[in-house]
Design a protein around this nucleic acid. Structure first.
Lengths: 245, 245
DNA sequence: CGCTCTAGTAAACGGTGTTAACTCCCGCCC
DNA sequence: GGGCGGGAGTTAACACCGTTTACTAGAGCG
């Protein structure tokens, strides 16, 4: 029993070490530096040993992605905990500001998780991270959104007009939202969340993501000495457009 | 004379071949496949020969970036030519749609030019590509904006309130805009373009970029079968918010 | 004790960027 | 025309990289 535990603890211990080292290399030297041999070297083992833990470098990177995602989620969770649960707008702002701050402080991770063309096909980690058992970053988003919805403050008229071609997708999204919220223990009257609500949330995310990505990649059309005022201004618009405040 | 030309033509000829091959590899096999040895192999030469043309792989990639940028610019220029010069809204829409279409059809290039963390520090190619003599992608944007402004249709009140902390940056941007437009032959009354105008253009770009990046990287919070309606909806909002239509 | 199973190793293969020394030939000057 | 400088290109080598194969050493279990 203890022996098995011992053995398994050793294994998962070095596994943790591997991912920690990979992460370290990623943040300090960029993605091209996270190499199997470098990780192994730093851990005092040899590169092929890593194949006991991951099928390939790509596999390791995928797990790294999930790790980054999970870390972001706990970070946002902490930021959220510092805002009273009754201050819903404050919670929304905290999430958005937290996401931006994280992205700016971890550009490599951001690029890896949120802007790598390889991640494009199929599901991604933004909301649904079904493969990793860990709570995903998107879960936090949805949880906060659920809390806001639960107060009866409408994000938008539940049946606000929506591009007709998107109605099917949005309906599915809405249904997912409802079950997701129920699963996280947030009771929200299901008639409050309609396709219009789902659409509003989508647009909210698009603009938040876009602003952050632009800032991280420095794609401003002119030199910007400090982008925070712009972010705050955008956030103000966003919160107003979506029906809060 | 001719001999010198001959020699130089040979040189710039193989230079063009190198970049063309690099480009080919980029689009067909992704960025990790654009390798010096592969390029050389395809050209029937050996890898070290490439060092006669570029100081390093990174240097080659940088030039590739500029090439991609320039190509996008001519592509957008063509799209623009198919819209009557008097249809200013149509021109704006053509540019935006062209940008999206290009990004979706060339995700690798898009990631390389518009979403690589390495490109972040300092100037980028979005607007100012002073190092490459070629017209940049941003020039097209500015030209169209200039045409719109020249008609007297305000993008926004020239002195619309602006985040105070951004005033200095925006003023510089405005000044750049004016000289840029003058240089491209678009006569625009300088009192029509104020910091508010500059701010409106910035916000326009942020939302366009954000939407396109999100779509290219597939970072939707749920499976979207067809993102075009959403793009069109966003475009509609954008054009209206900015004061056109 | 012996058996099994596994984390780890050593060696090797083919690929990479990069450097150094070397050809070879074009275009210029005398 | 005859040398010659210089640049395009080559070959060889170095130090990396991911990955595979065959192996070793040791822990846990009967």
């Amino acid at each position: 029993m203890t022996q098995v535990n011992r053995r398994e603890r050793d294994r998962s211990g070095t596994d943790r070490d591997i991912r920690r080292q990979a992460r370290e290399l990623l943040v300090t030297q960029g993605p091209q530096a996270v190499t199997l041999r470098a990780i192994a070297r730093e851990l005092g083992i040899t590169a092929p040993a890593l194949y006991r833990y991951y099928a390939s470098r790509e596999d390791l990177i995928a797990h790294l992605r999930a790790d980054v995602c999970a870390d972001l989620a706990v970070g946002l969770g902490k930021a959220l905990a510092e805002v009273p649960q009754t201050d819903h707008i404050g919670q929304v702002l905290a999430i958005c500001r937290g996401f931006r701050a994280w992205a700016l402080h971890h550009p490599q991770e951001f690029a890896l998780v949120f802007a790598s063309p390889a991640a494009a096909p199929g599901e991604n980690c933004a909301i649904a991270a079904a493969d990793t058992g860990t709570e995903s970053f998107g879960q936090i988003f949805l949880t906060v959104a659920g809390r806001v919805l639960a107060t009866g403050i409408l994000l938008a008229k539940p049946d606000e007009p929506v591009p007709t071609d998107m109605r099917a997708d949005l309906t599915r999204f809405r249904d997912d939202l409802v079950v997701n919220m129920a699963a996280t223990g947030v009771a929200v009257p299901s008639e409050l969340v309609g396709v219009g609500t789902a659409y509003a949330m989508l647009r909210f995310w698009v603009r938040l993501y876009g602003q952050v990505a632009l800032e991280v990649f420095g794609q401003f059309p002119f030199p910007v000495s400090d982008a925070e005022p712009m972010f705050e201004s955008m956030l103000d618009d966003l919160v107003r457009d979506v029906g809060l405040r």
